[in-house]
């Protein structure tokens, strides 16, 4: 099927423009992270006067980046783990059972997606502070508080997506497991889950990315000791505006794990989104 010449040219020009627009900020990030500080203090230079890896070494001493990094890692991993576990069980039930409140639950979970974060930020802040005064359980300014908060952020999407996945797995598989004397939980763990692995992995990546990138709650719910990269990096850029090479190096370092994971799994994420959308 031949396409007209104008379309071929439209494609070439259009995609070239989009590639440039996408590439320039990425180029700035990478090239600036390899520049000496003189290069980023004066007018912008496309080509560094010399290439240096110093910024990548300096970032760890200029600000407590390692501590931010560790906080982000612990919070994101724990939030991901719990979010995925909780979502698996909830999604299995919604996919396989007709129980009272099923509709209400699904609707409520989905609608929390549209709540503005700012609406429950203030009350959550007060709940955490008061809970501490009443019971001594520390949630405000701790990693635990952030973990609990973040795991719920990815729950709605995770549940929605896993329900879609579980629905594509034939019930006959569960029933075959029942005949073998396995209960529903066993069927979920041994039959349904292995068949839904791509979905589970995608949900995990989504949950990790959401926690790793969150700014609003991190800016209110953390203090210096529990600060995550999202807030730490921003304070860095306003504090030491002149060290842009280091800021870019730090941005690059914190981006790599997420971008790698995302590119690896984008296909599964789309499948989830569209399967939910079509239904």
């Amino acid at each position: 099927m031949a396409e007209p010449l104008w379309f071929t040219w439209l494609r070439r020009v259009g995609l070239t423009v989009l590639t440039l627009v996408t590439a320039v900020p990425l180029f700035v990030m990478v090239s600036s992270s390899l520049k000496p500080s003189e290069d980023v203090q004066s007018a912008f230079r496309w080509v560094p006067t010399e290439l240096t890896v110093r910024p990548f070494i300096d970032i760890w001493s200029t600000v407590p980046l390692a501590s931010y990094f560790a906080n982000s890692l612990v919070v994101s991993l724990a939030a991901t783990l719990f979010s995925v576990l909780i979502a698996i069980f909830a999604a299995y039930v919604i996919s396989r059972y007709r129980f009272r409140g099923r509709q209400l639950f699904s609707m409520t979970v989905l609608s929390t997606q549209m709540f503005p974060g700012i609406l429950f930020l203030l009350p959550l802040f007060l709940i955490f502070v008061n809970l501490e005064q009443l019971t001594g359980i520390q949630l405000y300014a701790t990693r635990t508080g952030l973990i609990i908060t973040y795991l719920t952020f990815s729950l709605p999407f995770s549940i929605w997506m896993l329900v879609g996945y579980f629905n594509t797995i034939p019930r006959e598989l569960d029933e075959a497991a029942f005949v073998d004397g396995t209960g529903p939980v066993g069927a979920l763990l041994r039959v349904v889950l292995p068949a839904a692995t791509p979905g589970v992995v995608a949900v995990a990546v989504y949950a990790f990315m959401a926690a790793w990138s969150e700014v609003l709650f991190a800016s209110v719910m953390t203090t210096e000791a529990s600060r995550t990269l999202a807030v730490g990096l921003q304070a860095y850029s306003t504090q030491s505006g002149v060290y842009w090479n280091q800021v870019m190096a730090a941005s690059l370092v914190v981006s790599v794990p997420v971008v790698a994971g995302f590119l690896f799994l984008q296909r599964y994420l789309v499948q989830g989104f569209t399967s939910g959308a079509v239904k």
Partner: peptide, 14 residues
């Protein structure tokens, strides 16, 4: 795919 803050900080610099 970039974390929001990393991308936006780069724009801030630009």
């Amino acid at each position: 795919a970039l974390p929001a803050y990393a991308a936006v900080i780069t724009w801030n610099f630009m």
